[in-house]
């Protein structure tokens, strides 16, 4: 299981990496392994406001359809259209090309409630 050192993690296995008030979010390597081959990523609307813990989008794999929860609160300012067109990017590169959205943080202090990389590694230790 790969862990991105500079990201923070939700219990539901999404990651967020903040830079200047905007967080890039996606699902963790653990999540993509559990999901199996991802075959569909639902649309995400630029401009939508989301709250931490609320549904950001859903993904479908050959096993199941799963909701993806936003790890942070704020406004969606960018969406990775490439991952919607090529869902396999989530499996190939969950922390890089497989990112889902960029969210302008309305409550940056929420990042502190997410797990650090070492804590997440411990949390998902098999």
């Amino acid at each position: 299981m790969k862990i991105q050192e500079d990201a923070r993690y939700a219990k539901s296995d999404e990651w967020a990496r903040a830079e200047g008030g905007v967080a890039t979010v996606g699902v963790s390597d653990y999540a993509q392994q559990k999901l199996g081959d991802v075959v569909f990523v639902g649309e995400i609307s630029v401009g939508a406001t989301v709250k931490a813990g609320e549904i950001l989008t859903s993904v479908e794999s050959v096993k199941a359809a799963s909701d993806i929860y936003s790890p942070v609160s704020g406004k969606v300012v960018a969406v990775n259209h490439e991952v919607i067109a090529k869902p396999e990017l989530i499996n190939a590169d969950p922390y890089g090309a497989g990112w889902l959205a960029k969210i302008e943080l309305s409550a940056p202090e929420e990042l502190n409630t997410l797990m650090s990389a070492p804590d997440y590694a411990e949390y998902r230790k098999e």
Binding site: S12, D13, A31, K34, L35, S61, A64, S66
Partner: peptide, 12 residues
């Protein structure tokens, strides 16, 4: 039925 029910967040 396989990979159901979901024990959130994944199909175990």
């Amino acid at each position: 039925t396989i990979y159901f029910p979901h024990f959130p967040p994944y199909a175990e």
